[in-house]
Computed example of a mutant assay.
Amino acid sequence: MLNHIVLFRRKPDVVANDGLEKSLVERMDALGTQITGIRGWKLSTNELDRPICWGYVLESRFDDTNALNEYLFHPLHQALVADLKPYFEWAAVDYTL
Rank of each mutant, 00 (worst) to 15 (best):
N3W: 11
H4G: 09
V6T: 07
V6A: 07
F8T: 00
F8W: 03
F8Q: 01
R10G: 03
R10K: 14
P12C: 00
V14E: 02
V15C: 01
A16E: 11
D18L: 15
G19W: 10
L20K: 05
E21H: 04
E21L: 00
L24P: 01
L24E: 01
V25W: 02
T33V: 15
Q34K: 15
Q34E: 15
I35P: 06
I35M: 10
T36C: 09
I38N: 02
R39D: 05
G40A: 14
G40W: 11
K42H: 13
K42I: 15
L43P: 02
L43G: 04
S44F: 10
N46S: 05
N46F: 02
L48T: 08
L48W: 14
G55M: 00
G55I: 03
S60N: 09
R61C: 14
F62Q: 02
T65S: 07
A67M: 07
L68H: 08
F73G: 03
F73Y: 15
H74S: 12
H74L: 13
L76C: 12
L76A: 15
H77W: 06
H77G: 09
H77V: 10
V81N: 01
L84V: 06
K85N: 05
P86K: 08
P86H: 05
Y87K: 04
A91E: 07
A91I: 15
A92Y: 08
Y95S: 05
Y95R: 04
Y95A: 04
L97R: 10
L97S: 10
